[in-house]
Design a protein around this nucleic acid. Sequence first.
RNA 1: GCGCCCGUAGCUCAGUUGGACAGAGCAACGGCCUUCUAAGCCGUGGGUCGCAGGUUCAAGUCCUGCCGGGCGUGCCA
Length: 595
Amino acid sequence: MKQHLQTLLETALAHLVANGELPAAAAAQLPPLERARDPQHGDFASTVALSLTKLARQPPRQLAERIVAALPASPQVAEVSIAGPGFINFRLAPSAYHAVIADILAQGPQFGRCDLGAGQTIQVEFVSANPTGPLHVGHGRGGAYGAVVADLLTAVGYTVHREYYVNDAGRQMDILATSVWLRYLELCGELLPFPSNGYKGDYVWDIAAALHREQGDAYRADADVVFADLPADARADLPADDPAAGDKEAHIDGLIARAKHLLGDHHYRLVFELGLNIILDDIRDDLAQFGVVYATWYSERSLAERGAVAQVISRLQASGHTYTQDGALWFRASNFGDEKDRVLIRDNGQTTYFATDIAYHADKFERGFARILDIWGADHHGYVPRIKAALLALGHPAERLDVHLVQFAILYRGGERVQMSTRSGEFVTLRELRREVGRDAARFFYVMRKSEQHLDFDLDLAKSQSNDNPVYYVQYAHARVSSVLRQAVERGLMPETSAGLTHLERLTEPQELALIKTLARYAEIVVSAATGVQPHLLTQYLRELAGDFHSYYNAHQFLVPDAALFDARLKLILATRQVLRNGLELLGVSAPDAM
RNA sequence: GCGCCCGUAGCUCAGUUGGACAGAGCAACGGCCUUCUAAGCCGUGGGUCGCAGGUUCAAGUCCUGCCGGGCGUGCCA
């Protein structure tokens, strides 16, 4: 419809140019058509007269009049008017709107989908939490956001590759393995001071118990030997800068080295793998139950194992983008837009997480995705320039990488902020959240706000079965349509007795027209939500659609004796249900037939 | 200090690549169930769009400078 109106305007401009009433350049400057914000202004508005006023050297209203006079007639357009400073407003013929209903019913689940992406491949990497513990509610937001973005992009025609980057190497995993082993030693009866920097969650005990079940006391060592001659751990009762306060990092690193030494490579590896696998299985299962499924779980360790990290480093070296200083190898990130240079290989010979991440992103480009979307927690925002810098240095088109940052979710219960901290073990897991509020509410709430906005997640609201709860509000609209259908069947008023789509002209009530207009916007909403990577536009829209339906429901009876009117109204609410269902489907939220 | 994000109604937030009088939900107040689920609907009140300049026919939206809040700023991941 938009396109149709634009064509009419183009024709009018061409006509005026041909008559010499407008300079030739004017024809090329047609601004996009807008939906009228106020129904009183009609359905669509063009600002063409406003934007051409300078070029044409005419006041906008006068220009608008000329354009309107040159506008070809169209059966779809009921009225064209000029308003305000020079807006050209279009009011559509009712039949143009009624056609939307037929469209929706014909396309069913396909309605709102399109081929904008033309099958281009796009990778979406999201969550990618370290497998050092269960997912918490912060990861949940990234999961819901990434999943919905991926589904939206699929809906508009992209071929989407969902990926989880598994940090299955590195120091944090060593800390986990060591934490598991220490808990195992405690289960064996050893008494020991658990390191302040270790993982203290209950799940570590569970993994340790699994280790003990499998291996008995075979991995046991004497606690005195384990802790002999280690750097002192940090003391909570002293400030960190006090020399006597100890060093929790040095302490835990000492413990890791001790674990590797006492267990030997093989046994250490086994402990490490056990922890990794149990936690990764848990994460996988958790996300699957949340409706989040990946095509690839990409192993960080595999990058190092096949030499990809060493390779990107030598490529950077060969192209002169590195230097050595203080025993470390540095990347000249500041030559590529980053604020300072970054270390690739530490003075102890270990590669940094950054180096591995370069290899990972280089690999993404080498796999040939047309676009790459990273969804990160907002605390990683400082990391974006250095990754882009490295990609540029490697000769990759870094502009194809878009990093979207998701701000934290803050939970509230009973008006009080719920405290979270992974390391201390006092956190709310995604699984607990799902158990408490359910998958539907969690998914909906997570994407309800702009991703760059902090999310206040009100647990009480998400749980409440009341009109305050937007999830229920939308789902209830869907259920109500189904309920009406059940009533229709009970009364013997079945759709097949109706006369098809020939009575839509009977839909003339204000609530009906408002509802139809909202339905007509759905496809545009999906496109802007997908291309703008803004799922909240969809939740916003669905609330509006549900609102229009509820108003209609309260104002008019659907099951009326007038067969033609009944038929028309039935078609309208069926179309409404279809759009609600399609939208909820994209959000990963169920569309119940009864509540 | 520097970088990024955010400041819109009492609260939580929208605001369509600048557009016509700034919107929604909640909260407050007043109505609506012998009729398809009241998990709903209708109505009323409530805002110097953080502040000050600038660009523009047009600024909540773009630019600059302040003020306030969050995050980041490691040879951590």
